[in-house]
Write a protein that binds this DNA or RNA. Structure first.
Lengths: 184, 184
DNA sequence: CGGAGCATGTAAGCGGTTACATGATTTC
DNA sequence: GAAATCATGTAACCGCTTACATGCTCCG
């Protein structure tokens, strides 16, 4: 039940239309809870029906865009959710699984090595993107507000997570390419 | 579509009954692809029907346990899967979401701090468990076989992942407890 | 005015979770 | 022989993914 709360958070940060939300999910919140536009529209409908958000009546709409904002009940629900407790979600990583499978059936003709390199490139790019975001949003030096410090922590999670991936994938790459050389 | 392949891998490592598989998932493979016994029994049924595994006829069963083993087609399917390509799964972490939400609605009366500490304890315990496994399964010094090196890499992923979590959660704990002190 | 793309949806299907069911074996 | 627990399932639900649908606006 995290998606509705992710949306409430995003709407508190800035009232938005469905499409805007989708874009912002792709750019920031989605790094920790991805969502497609279909999910978002559906969830916006539910949240509106429950009286947690509402469509801003204001200007009769440019095009057909509906802007939503959080109602007091929504803010309350979100505060209650923050205080709740959850088990950490079990990790799910097919690539690690592939390595274990490869231990049983062999690394297949360079395909696995290529896949590892592809993932390494993806995570390297993501790491660079996060670091750029950090430079832009949290230029060091001056004291950060409470909100900024919390948001910075979340971004740091992204950075350190990607550092973990790139570091590990480099190790994997070394071992796999060595094994591929042996088996040829 | 990773669960069937996780099961094939586990069965190649050692033919097992449904319950045994469930236990082994809890202990090792499940760290990278969790599964409940319901999923496993269902999937075993499908795999048997597709002719990728079979119930070992052997001893008419102690109790009612059915042991499964991988058939040649199953091994082939797994090898093909290893060579396949997959996008990395998007991360989903409610705790990071909670921090961002807290930036909007405030850290609530120590509840969030307690949750952070609870997660820190869980990840610390998991880290210790992985390290113990590493000591036991990969005692340094002697040269490792191909299979062992790959399996070691997977375990190292677990270790480094938990190191990431504990490191990050310690940072979070420091910030959150400071904020809670301020707001009281 | 016709085509590109913007913006908001609907529908079907699938994997995973939770709750319940059933028989067989072991333990007291 | 009753209770616990082992072992294998079935059923319902729910969130997420994928594919498709619809109307509107902007631009050449």
């Amino acid at each position: 039940m995290s998606l509705p709360h992710a949306i409430l958070t995003a709407l508190l940060e800035k009232p938005s239309s469905g499409l805007e939300l989708t874009r912002r999910f792709d750019r920031s919140i989605g790094f920790f809870w991805a969502a497609t536009h279909q999910q978002i529209y559906r969830e916006l409908g539910k949240l509106e029906q429950s009286g947690l958000i509402r469509a801003i009546p204001g200007p009769p709409a440019q095009g057909r865009r509906k802007e939503y904002e959080v109602l007091p009940d929504g803010r309350e629900e979100l505060a209650a959710w923050v205080a709740r407790s959850d088990e950490p979600r079990p990790l799910r990583d097919p690539l690690a699984l592939r390595l274990r499978a490869a231990a049983m059936v062999g690394v297949g003709e360079g395909r696995l090595g290529a896949e590892v390199q592809r993932h390494l490139a993806l995570h390297t790019a993501q790491l660079a993107a996060y670091r750029a975001m950090e430079q832009r949003q949290f230029p060091g030096g001056r004291r950060e507000s409470v909100e900024a410090r919390l948001q910075h922590l979340v971004l740091q999670a992204g950075i350190e997570m990607e550092r973990f991936w790139t570091g590990w994938l480099e190790q994997v790459e070394a071992v796999v390419s060595e094994l591929e050389a042996e088996s040829s």
